[in-house]
Design a protein around this nucleic acid. Structure first.
Length: 475
DNA sequence: TTTTGAGTTGTTCGA
DNA sequence: GTCGAACAACTCAAA
């Protein structure tokens, strides 16, 4: 009795790294040879997420708990301020270390800093690489600063690739006694989704196994045509990996490998795929170096632009409800409400309509996306909105206003995308178009049989108003 | 320090 | 229908 040598356990604070493969933090923990206690927190940061990201994060955690159980491990669920809860858990279990995979957005960083300060005198606290291919500070221009333009960033990193080989984890040592865990179902993380949860759930794929399957299918069927096919709104030409990357259900290096192999094999779409992965890096690079990217105009001169900020205005309401009267915009908004994701090109079109035709502040759109997107990523969302609005790190000329009608003609040639998502005025609306009405709040009082509205802002008038506003602003 | 070339994703007009 | 030019001027990154 009492002679069993006990090893002090190490705590793995699981966040956006819910995978076993290609996970440097987990690999390093296992490498210590000590029992690993994985813990997932409902903390101040998760609490502040929008409805869809919060819900989707819960699905990811639930799924990952099962995956860990399959490896003889567990995922401990705790609720409360991160600093306090991790401190308590370390004390309860006698853990000697708390490690996690590094995050890059302002909110997570300030939380992590506080956790580090609170624990560093008691246990070994570490933030480990793994969410990105390269750390934001490791990419520098000739003069030592961060990149602010994509193409030079791309040229600087494209041949660098990811660090190469990483150990695969086959077994996760368990502690002799597990600490108490809450039941994640009790957290009801989907409560703000209301009616939407049941509808969106059908379109969501959760977990590492699903992510790897998607990557395999992508490599086999889509990669070689990715260059053009990813722009087609109606056909599945994209990788659909964004929701997995954002919760770390798949690692960026695993994706990069697929792109690189495609390059070696001469797949024409491979470079475009690598470039998309580098866009994700670039967004995090900027977010790290400019922490208020999500809140403030990256070019401060835009602070003086007369954006409309009234959330209750007719334009904003109609845009959110997917009834601007511009078909391609409404189709996009409804796709997001029903599936929790939106085609990348549709994001540009609908964002351009809101910020240019309607002259609404990009932060209004950013916040709505943050509430609706299951693949919400703080860095990519902020960069995307600022880029479209023209306030971001890109020399977009002011006259670059997307014309929703010509975009529709180009990228939704046979109207399949619009027919899939719009019900009004159609004799036999698609199943997806009808499911929108099951997901939306009743107070929007919309029905499939409604008369499709006239544009809230005309395509031609909106463009002219935007150009006029920019001209006045510049002078 | 100065110079030079270039910049994700567009639209419209006129030949 | 297709093509190239104009749209304006500025910032970035590297030589």
């Amino acid at each position: 009795m009492g002679f069993m040598p006990t090893k002090t356990p190490v705590i793995w604070w699981v966040r956006r790294d819910m995978r076993l493969a290609d996970n440097p933090c987990l690999a390093a923990l296992v490498e210590t040879g000590r029992p690993v206690i994985p813990v997932f927190l409902l903390d101040e940061v998760l609490e502040s997420h929008g409805a869809a990201p919060k819900w989707r994060m819960g699905l990811a955690a639930e799924c990952f708990a099962e995956r860990l159980a399959g490896k003889g491990s567990r995922l401990i669920f705790r609720r409360g301020g991160a600093s306090r809860e991790l401190g308590r858990l370390a004390e309860e279990t006698g853990a000697g270390a708390v490690w996690w995979t590094r995050a890059y957005d302002a909110e997570a960083r300030s939380r992590d800093r506080a956790v580090y300060e609170g624990l560093k005198d008691r246990v070994d606290v570490r933030a480990v690489d793994g969410h990105l291919l390269m750390e934001p500070w490791s990419v520098r221009t000739g003069s030592g600063g961060p990149y602010k333009v994509y193409t030079p960033f791309w040229r600087a990193v494209k041949d660098r690739g990811p660090g190469g080989g990483w150990p695969r984890v086959s077994k996760i040592p368990a502690p002799g006694r597990w600490p108490e865990s809450e039941n994640i179902a009790d957290w009801n993380l989907g409560r703000e989704m209301r009616r939407g949860a049941a509808v969106v759930r059908e379109h969501v794929r959760v977990g590492e196994a699903e992510a790897l399957k998607r990557l395999r299918v992508f490599a086999r069927d889509r990669l070689s045509h990715y260059g053009d096919a990813r722009d087609d709104l109606a056909r599945p030409g994209t990788s659909e990996l964004s929701e997995h990357l954002t919760y770390g259900e798949i690692g960026p290096r695993t994706c990069w490998d697929v792109g690189e192999r495609g390059m070696r094999e001469g797949a024409p779409g491979a470079e475009a795929f690598l470039k998309e992965l580098v866009w994700r890096e670039f967004a995090h690079h900027l977010m790290w170096h400019f922490p208020d990217m999500a809140e403030a105009n990256w070019r401060s001169e835009w602070d003086a632009f007369p954006w409309k900020t009234d959330e209750r205005s007719r334009e904003v309401r109609r845009w959110k409800e997917g009834r601007t009267g511009v078909e391609i915009v409404d189709a996009a908004q409804r796709e997001m409400y029903v599936t929790g994701t939106m085609h990348n090109r549709a994001r540009m079109i609908t964002a351009s309509y809101l910020t240019k035709h309607c002259l609404v502040d990009w932060r209004v759109g950013r916040a709505w996306f943050e509430d609706c997107l299951i693949d919400w990523d703080p860095a990519s969302n902020a960069l995307g909105w600022q880029w479209v609005a023209g306030s971001g790190p890109d020399a977009a000329p002011y006259f670059r206003v997307f014309n929703p009608e010509s975009q529709a003609e180009k990228f939704d040639v046979d109207r399949r995308y619009r027919d899939r998502w719009l019900a009004e005025g159609r004799r036999r609306p698609s199943r997806d178009a009808l499911s929108y009405f099951d997901a939306i709040p009743e107070r929007w009082s919309m029905a499939p049989g409604d008369v499709y509205p006239d544009p809230v802002v005309g395509v031609k008038e909106g463009r002219e108003a935007a150009l006029r506003a920019y001209r006045d602003f510049k002078s």
